[in-house]
Amino acid sequence: MTHFLIYTEDKADSLHVRMEAREAHLEWALNHPTVKLISAGPWLDEAGDMRGSLLIVEGSDLKAVEAWLEDDPYNKAGLTAFRRVREFNWLLGAPA
Score class of each variant (00 low, 15 high):
residue 92 L to P: 07
residue 90 W to Q: 07
residue 64 A to C: 02
residue 15 L to Y: 11
residue 32 H to E: 11
residue 36 K to P: 08
residue 16 H to I: 01
residue 83 R to G: 00
residue 63 K to C: 06
residue 32 H to L: 06
residue 87 E to K: 15
residue 78 G to T: 14
residue 32 H to R: 04
residue 4 F to N: 04
residue 12 A to Q: 09
residue 17 V to H: 10
residue 78 G to A: 05
residue 21 A to I: 03
residue 72 D to V: 14
residue 75 N to P: 05
residue 9 E to D: 14
residue 74 Y to I: 11
residue 11 K to H: 15
residue 24 A to N: 09
residue 12 A to F: 13
residue 26 L to G: 04
residue 58 E to R: 14
residue 94 A to F: 04
residue 58 E to N: 02
residue 68 W to F: 15
residue 58 E to Q: 15
residue 31 N to S: 10
residue 69 L to T: 06
residue 20 E to F: 02
residue 96 A to F: 15
residue 30 L to Q: 00
residue 14 S to H: 12
residue 22 R to K: 11
residue 31 N to M: 04
residue 78 G to F: 12
residue 95 P to G: 00
residue 54 L to N: 10
residue 93 G to E: 01
residue 34 T to D: 11
residue 9 E to T: 14
residue 56 I to L: 08
residue 50 M to N: 07
residue 36 K to C: 02
residue 3 H to F: 15
residue 82 F to I: 06
residue 67 A to Q: 13
residue 74 Y to R: 05
residue 24 A to Q: 04
residue 40 A to L: 00
residue 41 G to W: 08
residue 32 H to K: 13
residue 51 R to I: 08
residue 18 R to L: 00
residue 17 V to Q: 14
residue 73 P to R: 13
residue 65 V to L: 08
residue 43 W to T: 06
residue 12 A to E: 13
residue 44 L to T: 09
residue 6 I to P: 01
residue 74 Y to G: 12
residue 23 E to W: 11
residue 37 L to W: 12
residue 85 V to T: 09
residue 91 L to S: 04
residue 32 H to S: 13
residue 91 L to V: 02
residue 67 A to M: 14
residue 52 G to L: 02
residue 94 A to M: 08
residue 82 F to L: 10
residue 31 N to C: 01
residue 14 S to E: 09
residue 76 K to F: 12
residue 47 A to W: 01
residue 48 G to F: 06
residue 15 L to R: 08
residue 72 D to E: 05
residue 43 W to F: 07
residue 35 V to D: 01
residue 23 E to I: 11
residue 84 R to D: 06
residue 81 A to S: 12
residue 91 L to P: 05
residue 78 G to V: 14
residue 17 V to W: 11
residue 85 V to S: 09
residue 80 T to V: 15
residue 37 L to A: 09
residue 25 H to F: 06
residue 3 H to I: 10
residue 7 Y to R: 03
residue 5 L to M: 12
residue 62 L to I: 02
residue 92 L to D: 02
residue 31 N to Q: 10
residue 4 F to R: 00
residue 58 E to V: 15
residue 23 E to D: 08
